[in-house]
Design a protein around this nucleic acid. Structure first.
Length: 204
DNA sequence: TGAATGATCACG
DNA sequence: GTGATCATTCAT
């Protein structure tokens, strides 16, 4: 069995990590069993350099884990009802993160359907093709904020995928009002687990 | 296109 | 305290 991606991997720029995470394996130990997925969509947030980042101007109670060690999760609550999951990048003290926006489950599919209370016929992509959808079905909430995913013992881990072959495209990030021109969203071309499948402004 | 729904932050 | 905003989702 491989080791999960090490802390040094997450010390890189969020832009580097966001693009490189496409195609890698995400494993999450849910209350009902382990689910393994392929990461198919991410976005980079560049902390002090990025007006759209939650850590652009200052360090607060809610964004503090983005200033901690690379490889910890940053989970935030938004719109009064949703959780979104990021992994902290860049070295300790320098805020930055990669948001998980879409994943394709490949093991533990029945577990996911059970958590969502859906039948085998349900279109699986509708459960994981959005940042708040995937946290909901994986039962990721604020209690995961600050979790270190570089440890073998962690309930969330990311593993390499040496066989990955696929075309990675990029586009502006979804749902932000600042820094809209930057193409800091990355996704696997043609994959149905990618959110906002129909988007005009992209390049590959 | 707009409602749901609540935490957070800037302001003064 | 008040109001605006929000890295979303779903129904209309």
């Amino acid at each position: 069995m491989n080791n999960p991606l090490p802390r040094s991997y997450f010390e890189q720029s969020p832009l580097t990590v966001a693009k490189d995470l496409i195609g890698k394996y995400l494993t999450v130990k849910t209350p009902l069993g382990v689910v393994k997925s392929v990461i198919v969509e991410t976005e980079a947030y560049l902390g002090h350099l990025d007006p759209a980042s939650h850590a652009y101007k200052r360090q607060t109670k809610s964004n503090e884990v983005m200033f901690l060690s690379p490889g910890v999760l940053y989970v935030y609550f938004t719109y009064g009802m949703h959780y979104c999951m990021n992994v902290k990048c860049w070295p300790y003290g320098t805020p930055g993160a990669v948001l998980f926006r879409g994943i394709e489950p490949i093991k533990g599919v029945s577990t996911l359907l059970k958590i969502a209370n859906k039948s085998q016929k349900f279109e699986l992509s509708n459960l994981t093709n959005g940042p708040a959808k995937l946290t909901k079905v994986l039962k990721i909430d604020k209690s995961y904020n600050g979790l270190d995913i570089c440890l073998r013992s962690s309930t969330v881990k990311i593993f390499p995928n040496d066989d990955f072959k696929g075309k990675i495209c990029k586009s502006p990030r979804i749902g932000i009002s600042k820094n809209k021109d930057k193409q800091w969203r990355f996704y696997l071309d043609g994959n149905k687990f990618v959110s906002h499948f129909k988007q005009s402004n992209f390049s590959c």
